[in-house]
Design a protein around this nucleic acid. Sequence first.
RNA 1: GGGGCGGUAGCUCAAUUGGUUAGAGUACCGGACUGUCGAUCCGGUGGUUGCGGGUUCGAGUCCCGUCCGCCUCGCCA
Length: 609
Amino acid sequence: MFKRSHTCGQLRQDHVGLAVTLSGWVNSYRDHGTDLIFIDVRDRFGITQLVFESDGVSAADMEAADKLRNEDVISATGTVRIRKGGPNPKLATGAIEVVVTSLTLLNKTDNPPFLPDDMGQLPNEEIRLKHRYVDLRRPRMQSILGTRHRVTKIARDYFDENGFLEIETPILYKSTPEGAREFLVPSRNVPGNWYALPQSPQLFKQILMVAGCDRYMQICRCFRDEDPRADRQAEFSQIDLEMSFVQREDVMEVMEGFARRLWSQALGVTVPPLKRLTYSEAMERYGIDRPDTRYGLEIHNISDLAARIDFGVFKSALEKNPGTRHQGVVKAIVVSAAQGAERLTRKILDSYSEFVKTFGAGGVPVVKVNAQGVFETGIAKFLEPLRGELTDRLALKPGDLVLFAADANNIATKAMGELRQKVARDTGVVPEWGKAWNFLWVVDFPMFERDKESNRWVAMHHPFTAPRHDQQQAFLAADPSDEEAIAAIVSAGYDMVVNGSEIAGGSIRIHDPAVQGKVFGLLGLTPQQAQDKFSFLLEALRFGAPPHGGVAFGLDRLIMHLVGTDNIRDVIAFPKTQIGADLLTRTPSPVTDEQLKELHIKSTWTPNV
RNA sequence: GGGGCGGUAGCUCAAUUGGUUAGAGUACCGGACUGUCGAUCCGGUGGUUGCGGGUUCGAGUCCCGUCCGCCUCGCCA
């Protein structure tokens, strides 16, 4: 029999004397010979020690117990008693043991590729993913799966209480090639036509608002066929929301309430009211649209001072793109002695130039402030005329380091934003997990940005994002050819950021067909193209569309924060690798010519000979 | 598409300048052991050094190609 009476984490002193049956995996065995064997049996709920004594169990069962090995699946019946050898404080069940009277071996395991314990070093990730069923047995992974379950439950409860309706939207959807690369699915019934997997349910949830659903939520899967990162998968999950008759503040209030509920229930952490940063402020002070405010190291614009000295590096940078928003700038980060400037060795500082080159910047000039307040290092003599003013403006003290970036505004900003985070890691000023939760809002994003390659406008958030309420008239009046005017339009978007990570983003949507048409036009869609791709949306906007807006939380990233991992694969039961492969099921995989034919497609792939 | 790191026993790793029969821990197999708890002790099995070429008297080590995993730039409306 294997129907258990209790779980492996359940038994306590109160249960002493009870006849019980436990089922689970052999976590470890301690074989003391023909008369005494200990087996720790494990399930999702815990570990319990079983004792086999030769005078309490049949000879056959004793022999079977002798042969048990790690990860065998067993069921054992016996009696609970206080441990004879003293309690084991490491186990929740450590006060008791179960003296076994009968044993059933349910599944004899082959020698497992690795043991699912969290004590030693983990095998490499390839092995873990190949044998995911073993990896997921680890208590740590079970705990993460448990957190993930609780988060989705809290989300459903919270949004239910706030009047949201959970509604499913299609996975087989229409291709809308703006944005991320899509996964395509061929249609059998309509030869030559295709579905796409949704990058997000964006338009369906807007249609649901037009359909009078008022408040929608869904825990949905999204698909973007782009290269992954440590915190990004091609297939990922969102807590997706949309609300009718709301302005920006209304959505933000609901979001903030959810974040507060989540951190409270999952971690016991109280989230204070969120501060707000505008996008331009974030970019200016932190060089990134999702600032990590757990440490200082803010970025200073010293272009005005830099322009006054004869230093070639600064001079040539400042001459870039005159009169535009990408005009050359000189920016500085101060690493104070108190923030661990001495940890930035010559070698590390040298590596920073290589580091910023990956973002297109030229290098990182450095000066060090010596004990007399005088600048040292190679470029010190060029900066000497500015020493007094720089010392005042940057509040420099002996022992401080100043790191510079001089380039076109967008490049210098990006390089400094990334460098700031790297410096923080290198100096050790980033608090360890769980010590600080710096939530904030970023608002007032530009509606559009210029795509470098195609030199066209692209929507910064997405093409359905509305201009901020007070920008609507300016937007409708703006001349599409006036680049600076278009770039200056601010959207009604908002991102929630915690510890430098974007965990949610959303916006008030366009509900006016005229505004939507102008956006499509700016994005380079002809009226005919807009009609072909989004006729359903444009029509819906003409048939009674309420003002609406919404947001999506990145579920995987939320879990990463709540469990303290920087690997997104740890929070997904069956994740994919860098090339989108599932090593467990060996996906993707070839299909037959018959399958292809039925779908009216032909592969152009040929094997390398 | 670019850059970086890695791939040696089931697993984690080692192997000096290119040089004897590629080692250790653990797992596994056999044995001993009545109070362990990451049991202990004794013995043993286990290798296409990712794969394919090349250089060399000799390659885990050097070269070329390729596959896989991770990090990253681009990309991610």
